[in-house]
């Protein structure tokens, strides 16, 4: 990782009429670094990505790409690679034709676009299907082409919006391999995902978004440690939502509620062996869980803690 940030977001705000949006986002991503934006649907991840690409004009704040403003500077946009959430390809064109078209649109000349398309076909392991029409490929193959079309012009900054959405585990693994290779090329990658296992596998740092704001930011392991201090996570299910007094008691023992008001989570010193004593202590103050479990905390646990919601993918 080099010292200078490739992506800088300064108090970036963009809101919509329904009150949603992103608010006062401060983030930076260095060359060779992957920053994962984690959060539920509607948390503001796609809005953030689209504001960085220049597709949405910020209400206030600034986006700086390699020291330049992509809003006004076409040269800055030339260094941007975008992989949209949907399959942003021409379905009636072959893989090779798609790659050449998007290479040209990214500013490559015809010769370079052909060369890069051939290299990209090798990279995504679809050379033998170069002449296949994209609309006839499997979802995983389309995702690979979608990724290749975004990196064909060798951008220094790559913006990935849920690049593995809607594909099976095997296809996701292949894509993770490709994304890992991108990281090793020294590109600054801003990755939007709601898959915390993907974030853990790929990201150097994670920013958890909720309601358009960055709730917490740091390395995946650091974040888990910050909230659980090396302890296991307890998961309690109550028979009914906790009342005011019970909620106070649960908070006093370091638990926090999930989106489902009958679920409570938190660190449990001593782990599984300590669970009976933990449950007994709660029963003593009138809180009797109908179910209790212990697990190793992960980024999903961090999301639960910071946004009060269940991550949609575990």
């Amino acid at each position: 990782m080099s010292g200078e940030p490739a992506i800088e977001l300064h108090r970036l705000t963009r809101s919509f009429a329904d009150g949603r949006g992103i608010f006062e986002i401060d983030l930076a991503v260095r060359a060779g670094e992957v920053l994962a934006l984690l959060g539920d649907n509607g948390a503001g991840k796609t809005t953030l990505i689209r504001t960085v690409t220049g597709r949405l004009r910020p209400d206030s704040g600034r986006v700086v790409i390699n020291g330049r403003d992509p809003m006004v500077d076409a040269a800055a946009r030339r260094k941007l690679g975008v992989v949209p959430q949907r399959i942003a390809l021409y379905p009636d064109l072959t893989i090779r034709e798609n790659l050449e078209v998007f290479g040209r649109l990214a500013g490559l000349d015809a010769h370079a676009a052909r060369g890069r398309a051939a290299a990209a076909l090798e990279w995504i392991e679809l050379s033998t299907r170069a002449g296949s029409v994209v609309g006839q490929l499997s979802g995983g193959q389309q995702r690979r082409v979608n990724l290749a079309a975004g990196v064909l012009h060798d951008p220094t900054v790559l913006l990935l919006d849920e690049p593995t959405a809607g594909i099976d585990a095997e296809a996701r693994e292949r894509l993770h391999d490709l994304l890992g290779k991108l990281k090793s090329r020294g590109q600054a990658v801003l990755l939007s995902t709601h898959d915390f296992s993907e974030a853990k596998a790929l990201a150097d740092r994670v920013a958890v978004l909720a309601n358009g704001r960055v709730r917490v930011e740091g390395g995946p392991e650091d974040l888990v440690f910050r909230f659980f201090g090396g302890h296991q996570e307890v998961d309690l299910t109550l028979a009914a939502p906790a009342g005011a007094e019970a909620s106070t008691r649960l908070a006093e023992v370091g638990l926090w509620p999930g989106r489902d008001p009958t679920r409570w989570f938190g660190p449990i010193p001593g782990g599984l062996p300590a669970l009976p004593r933990f449950v007994a202590a709660l029963a003593a103050v009138g809180i009797v869980p109908v179910q209790a479990g212990v697990r190793t905390p992960d980024l999903g646990s961090v999301i639960r803690r910071t946004s009060g919601s269940e991550p949609s993918v575990s």
């Binding site: 942003a88 390809l89 649109l105």
Partner: peptide, 14 residues
């Protein structure tokens, strides 16, 4: 616009 091709095109220099 619906597929995201526009996002990709407009994020580039054109």
């Amino acid at each position: 616009r619906e597929s995201g091709v526009l996002d990709r095109v407009l994020a580039g220099p054109h």
